[in-house]
């Protein structure tokens, strides 16, 4: 259900960026969404369609690149992907892990006319 608020934020940011360029239309928005953010793409696309309807972003394609969860082990200095929320280093078994991917939620770029 938080997709509606997120869709509104995406629209605000895209409209502001497009406005600075004097764009008449936004055709595509490239979004990066970490797996941990729990974004449901279908729902987000639907909500975005609703909020953007009467704006220059109406009909824009919302492209969502999902980023899997990955971590860095402080113990043995290795990077690895985290599956099934196993926050354990596969090499040395340490649980001292920094997340390096999977929590992002940002607009990378937009395409305008």
């Amino acid at each position: 259900m938080h997709e509606m608020g997120i869709a509104q934020n995406i629209l605000d940011i895209a409209l502001s960026a497009a406005g600075k360029e004097g764009a008449s239309k936004i055709t595509r928005i490239n979004l990066v969404a970490g797996e941990l953010r729990g974004i449901v793409p279908l729902q987000l696309t639907f909500c975005f369609g609703l909020v953007s309807k009467d704006t220059i972003a109406g009909g824009a394609y919302l492209n969502i690149d999902e980023v899997p969860v990955s971590g860095h082990c402080d113990g043995c200095n290795s990077d690895f992907s985290i599956k099934e929320y196993e926050y354990v280093c596969p090499k040395c078994g340490s649980t001292k892990i920094q997340l390096i991917g999977g929590t992002e939620l940002s607009i990378k770029d937009i395409e305008i006319e």
């Binding site: 997120i6 934020n9 995406i10 605000d12 940011i13 895209a14 960026a17 497009a18 360029e21 764009a23 979004l31 992002e104 939620l105 940002s106 607009i107 990378k108 770029d109 937009i110 395409e111 305008i112 006319e113």
Partner: peptide, 14 residues
């Protein structure tokens, strides 16, 4: 035309 945005979606909230 493509323009770089690189902006966190929840930045207004944050």
């Amino acid at each position: 035309m493509k323009i770089n945005v690189m902006q966190d979606v929840l930045q207004a909230n944050d």
